[in-house]
Write a protein that binds this DNA or RNA. Structure first.
Lengths: 128, 128
DNA sequence: TGAAACCTTCACATCAGTGTGAAGGTCAAG
DNA sequence: CTTGACCTTCACACTGATGTGAAGGTTTCA
């Protein structure tokens, strides 16, 4: 698959796909003519990257996190330097804090919306 | 409390406090000499803002979300225009997606770290 | 053969959240 | 009265994620 198809499949601009490659988040094969060529499983990978980015992780961190997440573990033992482990632990904490903040605020917004709706409806249901 | 103290209490630079004010996230009283003056409860507010920013919400959205989160509801009915409600609903979805992505990846990282540690320890415990 | 639709690299632009620092006002303490 | 530690506004700089578009190569199809 070439870059255009990957872009279409993932809803990601070509520009960004090249950017992710530049940042070391994905790699590409090259055809004889220089065109990038991607394996099918890259669609998921790109989506995962988007999710992590949207979740607030910078590409620098994603680059370290990603290889640990591939399901058929390729690098459990090999590349797991103490530094990587340390970075990952820290990042885990930050993710947890983000989750907490998001959850708290999601709940608050939900509650608010519920109140507003509960207050809008009865007025028409009961009074009508 | 003046800006310096608020900055110290919240671990936020003065620059950013002014920026948040500029973006309409906080307001300040002014002393006779022009210095900003803050109520004690602003510390929490700033922390909440930091949390939301870190969670990926832009100031534009935070500005809309924040007033709905104040606990003694000041604006349940009054300012709840349909547009605000709509924005909030959408933002709620985005927050949920972020939470999901973060949770998924947190779990994956946790699992990875567990595996690495489980593989590092027995080697020394059992073999020793 | 030439147009359309891909692709390449490169460079400059934008936006938000920040930092940094200049130029200057205020106030308390020596 | 001066010094130091605050404060003010303003403006420019940076970073990271993105858009845009130029200048040019490749492939396909009429």
């Amino acid at each position: 698959m070439r870059i255009g198809e990957l872009a279409d499949r993932t809803g990601t601009s070509r520009r960004l796909l090249r950017y992710y490659e530049e940042q070391g988040l994905i790699v590409s094969q090259r055809c004889a003519n220089g065109y990038r060529s991607y394996d099918d499983r890259f669609a998921d990978r790109v989506l995962q990257i988007r999710g992590l980015l949207d979740a607030g992780l910078p590409t620098r961190v994603i680059k370290q996190v990603l290889p640990c997440l591939d399901k058929p573990r390729a690098i459990v033992f090999s590349d797991a330097t103490p530094e990587i482990i340390e970075t990952l632990s820290q990042e885990l904490e930050r993710m947890q804090r983000r989750i907490d903040a998001l959850t708290r605020n999601r709940d608050a917004v939900t509650e608010y919306l519920d109140e507003v709706r509960a207050q809008a409806r009865p007025a028409t249901e009961v009074a009508a």
